[in-house]
């Protein structure tokens, strides 16, 4: 099994290296940091612009391969370069990544758990009311763009606040400014801020996961080994969980990594709508500001996130499927 995991890890690392390098090349050739200075009035002398861009490693007159070498060399030393405003990208990402991770992790963990439970339950009670409700829920949710879903949740939250007459749920930012984040009030306040944006991601993840899990479970339900397990004397629930669900989870493990990428994209929308200063917002702003190093930094972050998720799903795969372990 160690061999299998090592091979997978190596493959994933290669993928992340290629993906991040490719996105660096894309960003370095497609984004135009010079535009930031061209629009100024009076226009700065071109020697000054070149010197500034050189210092930021964003000068389009330098061959892209040379810029990449410098960027990659810095990266190996743990330095992601500087933003277009001459701030370290490391600081920016270090501050923002926890904001996004909180959203994405809660969305992924709660969403996956609920999605698996709902999908499996739906399959077991196929064509009953609960199953039909789940199918309709997935179908409708997956037809609504994350943006619209976010707006709906935000307005629903405001509606609930108005109905209650006090502020139960917050719709802007990650906490009320000026509070100490580590006191009871601060934590409660943060939780009240967290509810709506993570709910959006959870709903998306449940719809996504539930739909596939239901299919995977339906494929397993008619199988011989489940009948054998029942014939051996296992109760229906035990047989379904120990033999049915376990087998049905194997193909789902692969989706886990996909789900992370999906949720990160979803988080860019919720961050924008709910005013969170996370990685998604950072990415969108950086593209608009032609900030090459920041864009490359965010893609590296997403790549590493997917790498970890991919490795976790391989671990789950190895744990669930005994054939991998031999």
């Amino acid at each position: 099994m160690a061999g299998f995991l090592l091979r997978r890890l190596l493959y994933l690392v290669c993928l992340v290296v290629i993906a991040t390098s490719a996105s660096y090349f894309l960003a370095a050739t497609q984004l135009n940091p010079r535009a930031r200075y061209e629009g100024r009035n009076p226009p700065p002398p071109s020697a000054v612009v070149d010197a500034t861009l050189d210092q930021l490693n964003m000068n389009d007159k330098v061959p892209v391969l040379t810029r990449y070498q410098r960027w990659a060399g810095d990266l190996l030393r743990g330095n992601l370069g500087r933003t277009i405003d001459n701030q370290p990208v490391n600081d920016e990402i270090g501050r923002r990544m926890w904001v996004s991770l909180r959203l994405v992790l809660i969305g992924a963990l709660v969403g996956t758990f609920l999605g698996v439970a709902a999908g499996a339950y739906g399959a077991v009670t196929q064509y009953q009311l609960s199953d039909r409700l789940l199918t309709v829920f997935s179908f409708v949710t997956l037809s609504i763009p994350a943006v619209v879903l976010g707006v709906l949740f935000k307005n629903a939250g405001i509606g609930i606040n108005n109905l209650l007459g006090f502020r139960l749920l917050y719709t802007t930012g990650e906490m009320t400014p000026g509070l100490d984040p580590w006191t009871v009030t601060g934590l409660l306040n943060r939780t009240a801020h967290l509810v709506l944006p993570s709910l959006v991601l959870i709903v998306i993840a449940v719809a996504f996961y539930g739909r596939y899990q239901r299919n995977a479970m339906l494929d397993v339900l008619g199988s011989d080994f489940l009948r054998t397990a029942r014939a051996k004397g296992l109760s229906r629930t035990r047989a379904l969980i120990k033999h049915g669900l376990r087998t049905a989870l194997i193909p789902m493990a692969t989706f886990f990594a996909y789900e992370f990428a999906l949720l990160f994209v979803g988080a860019t929308f919720t961050e924008r709508l709910f005013g969170w200063h996370g990685m998604g917002e950072y990415f969108v702003n950086s593209v608009t500001k032609n900030d090459v190093n920041s864009v490359a930094g965010v893609t590296l972050f997403v790549g590493v996130l997917v790498l970890i998720a991919g490795f976790l799903s391989d671990l789950a795969y190895a744990a669930l499927d005994p054939r991998v372990r031999v």
Binding site: V16, A261, V265, T268, V298, T299, V302, V306
Partner: peptide, 8 residues
């Protein structure tokens, strides 16, 4: 899978 199409 590593780099979502949205980002690219």
């Amino acid at each position: 899978m590593v780099l979502p199409a949205f980002l690219i």
